[in-house]
Design a protein around this nucleic acid. Structure first.
Lengths: 320, 320
DNA sequence: CTTTCACTGACAACTGCTGTCAGTGAAGTT
DNA sequence: AACTTCACTGACAGCAGTTGTCAGTGAAAG
């Protein structure tokens, strides 16, 4: 295999610390200069940190650190990386194959003693989560590609009212895993604005030949959180919501995805939230209902009235 | 280059010290056995000390294992590891410091181009989760240590009824992150059985000088899931629960942590679950209530009656 | 503005890899 | 002694991946 031999030779040549031009390498190995470029590409792709400089006195060299000391992880660092991989896997991370490769390399790269310690440490650590429907995996993969390479894609999307709107072209600026659900934040060419899309509702996704530029300052996280919890302009209109009840139920309430962001104070017997009036009377009743009698609303009275109203409506609804 | 990859894989497989026959290798790598022989030839030719034994119990093995070669990750593998780290971080992973070290090393060993590609790819990827109270971090860290090194610990635990039971010594067999909440599965010396403990309720944890041996066959995952969803012995007593309504609401229902495990069938307009009678009338009403009128119970009638009952109770509860 | 260098894409020629088949020999088992 | 298991070899057709060639872009330095 002349190819592998030559690539190794190049590595050794560079490892001496010398700076070499492609032409020099091609002459030394008696191969075409084009082939040198190809080898360099291949080496970079497998993770060798090769530095290339153009122009006068240019050429190839190896990252200084790399020559001095190869990448070494302590057993603890390995463990954390492997633990982290478990989280990703359980969240339905789409690039599971590459991740699998990486983790198996990590596991291999230890002697037997370390290996047994590692596997022992890993045995006691579990992440359990809904992995998501396997059906979304291909969509997620395609999306990840599109986000990473800034390709526009065409999707057909089922919106929240079950209507299947016409196909649209979107520029996926980012993908977000929130609360174990996948979203993409994208500029929608149909509506001409940035929107967030639930990946499970993307029925179809196809790459387009167009590409886009994500604005530099754009942050998917910020956009998503703004979208989820719009900025409150008028702070004076906020209403205190005071809940009492069993510590267990209160704890749970305080980590509710919506309420947690409005938590003001938590005492041993009460949880106090600060909310806008509208949200308080539309969303909150439905958050509180499932806790039944394990919690009580202490304030405001209006919410209690609303709860009575909601409960009686539901009673009627199911009485038919 | 599948060839190189496969040859490397063979090396790593043998490096573990195992003896493997050509057939086993060929099946694992999904290549022809002839090709395995060819690879072996090539490896021997490049100086790898491979021992081959013919006849019964024959196969290949390595003379002295532990092959040194620098750990190299392709840019994709790096990306997935860094993505995975985000998941762990957002889940409130306790060993965040070691993880941080590992990821910064990963980022370090790249040239500028790789680095910019990496950071660009990472910019579009976000995981957003409740990170958990910072207060549990020290407990989690201590627990992780104890699990990994098999140390018994003494904890004070607030159980679900707000009573603070006496301190107890537990042998933490494992830790589990389920639905973004941390648990430990441990042998409890107070109750003399394996139990699961919610980490947020551990008020105090101190190492003891005792150590334990985790049973080899123990799996925290299995125990936890059995605990969460006990085996149904009598399959005949199961009742069909049929829910109709908006696709959006149904989707959500089908990924509910409890109901998802009982999903039988999902059509475009209905979701059908199969449940034990007791659970159906105790838990399910509280799961269904918050969905309000976006879903309807189609079957069984008894559940509707129960819903009416629950709703009217709640109405009364809040009327005072 | 020129030189030097890295880098890309397309394409035809070609090299070397793969699977298949058929067969040999050594080590152990029955 | 017959049989099984396993490593190993040679030949060959088909095919995948590699190479050299050519033509051209872009960045850095003098």
């Amino acid at each position: 295999m002349p190819k592998n031999d030559n690539m190794l030779t190049i590595l050794w040549m560079l490892n001496s610390g010398e700076k070499l031009t492609a032409k020099q390498i091609s002459e030394k190995l008696e191969i075409n200069i084009r082939t040198v470029y190809r080898y360099m590409d291949a080496l970079c792709a497998s993770g060798v940190p090769i530095i290339s400089d153009t122009g006068h006195n240019g050429g190839y060299s190896l990252l200084h650190n790399f020559i001095k000391s190869p990448l070494l992880f302590s057993i603890n660092e390995k463990k954390t990386l492997l633990h982290a991989a478990l989280f990703a896997k359980e969240a339905g991370y789409p690039l599971s194959e590459a991740l699998e490769n990486a983790t198996s390399k990590l596991k291999m790269y230890s002697n037997q003693e370390q290996e047994s310690i590692l596997s022992h440490h890993l045995a006691g650590f579990e992440v359990i989560n809904r992995r998501g429907y396997p059906a979304v995996q291909p969509v997620l993969q395609e999306l990840e590609h599109a986000v990473a390479n800034e390709w526009s894609v065409e999707i057909s999307y089922r919106n929240s009212h079950d209507e299947q709107s016409p196909n649209r072209v979107i520029d996926p600026y980012g993908m977000v895993n929130w609360n174990n659900k996948w979203y993409t934040i994208a500029f929608c060419h149909l509506r001409n604005e940035i929107r967030s899309f639930r990946v499970e509702r993307i029925l179809n996704i196809t790459r387009t030949p167009f590409s886009f530029r994500r604005p530099n300052e754009f942050s998917a996280r910020t956009f998503f959180m703004k979208n989820l919890l719009p900025d409150v302009v008028d702070k004076s209109g906020l209403i205190s919501l005071i809940i009492g009840g069993r510590a267990e139920a209160l704890d749970d309430l305080c980590i509710h995805w919506f309420l947690e962001h409005h938590l003001q104070e938590r005492t041993s017997t009460q949880a106090i939230f600060l909310l806008e009036e509208e949200l308080l009377y539309t969303h909150v009743p439905y958050i509180i209902l499932p806790y039944g009698k394990s919690i009580q609303v202490i304030e405001p009275q209006n919410l209690k009235n609303k709860l009575v109203e909601v409960a009686s409506e539901l009673m009627e609804y199911y009485q038919v």
